[in-house]
């Protein structure tokens, strides 16, 4: 059963790494990478168990997730592009104006 342990280990560490990126890094681009990491961790899980069960639907689900992740990245990057144009640097401490 060590293979399922390996899968859980990999996806879990990937997820935590993504979350760490998201929380700790100040550059927005790095945070987007963190987001992608979290999504890929989930994808890893789905693909691993779909393969073991030979369940094509699972693989189809993984494909679907990748498409959704791509859409999300597009939207994120377009926002950050605008921020770069406005601010010159996509830093999270440039966007602290709204508070209270």
């Amino acid at each position: 059963m060590n293979s399922s342990l390996l899968v859980w280990g990999a996806s879990g560490s990937l997820f935590i790494l993504g979350a760490a990126f998201l929380v700790l890094r100040r550059q927005l681009i790095a945070m987007i990478i963190g987001l992608e990491l979290m999504i890929n961790a989930a994808n890893l899980n789905i693909v691993a168990y779909a393969a073991r069960r030979g369940d094509a639907a699972g693989l189809a689900a993984a494909m679907l997730v990748i498409a959704a992740a791509a859409a999300e990245a597009v939207v994120g990057l377009s926002l950050i592009l605008n921020l770069l144009r406005e601010e010159g640097a996509a830093e999270s401490d440039r966007i602290r104006e709204l508070s209270g």
Partner: peptide
């Protein structure tokens, strides 16, 4: 994004 990431991870655990 973080929320949907968590949702997806939860989904994958459920699927697993």
């Amino acid at each position: 994004g973080a929320a949907s990431g968590m949702f997806l991870f939860g989904l994958s655990i459920w699927y697993a």
